[in-house]
């Protein structure tokens, strides 16, 4: 599945992450901004990638602005962003 509608979920608040999905046809690309990128960047990207895979998303540009979210939050925000995109609506 290719993301057709731009969408976002989450917030730029402590312990949270803002996930923005943009339409793309070049596979999954992730642009991550995070204060803990050096220590956890790879892990955060892998959580995003796996969650998208499980949701059946094959192509999108993900812009992620992280403020120290744990994995369960990252997962939840990605799922919500995908749901919102499928719902046709973006609120940005």
């Amino acid at each position: 599945m290719i993301i057709q509608n731009p969408s976002c979920a989450g917030a730029m608040e402590s312990n949270d992450i803002l996930i923005m999905l943009h339409p793309s046809e070049d596979g999954v690309q992730i642009q991550l901004e995070s204060k803990v990128k050096k220590q956890f960047g790879r892990r955060i990207e892998s959580v995003i990638k796996t969650t998208l895979e499980q949701a059946g998303v094959t192509s999108t540009v993900v812009i992620a602005r992280d403020k120290g979210a744990l994995d369960y939050t990252i997962k939840a925000r990605v799922i919500t962003a995908v749901n919102r995109s499928l719902g046709g609506g973006s609120y940005e």
Partner: peptide, 18 residues
Amino acid sequence: IDEKDAARVLVSMALETF
């Protein structure tokens, strides 16, 4: 109102994790 969907998923993931 516009975060009802997000909270539902977040709490679900929390119950799954902790």
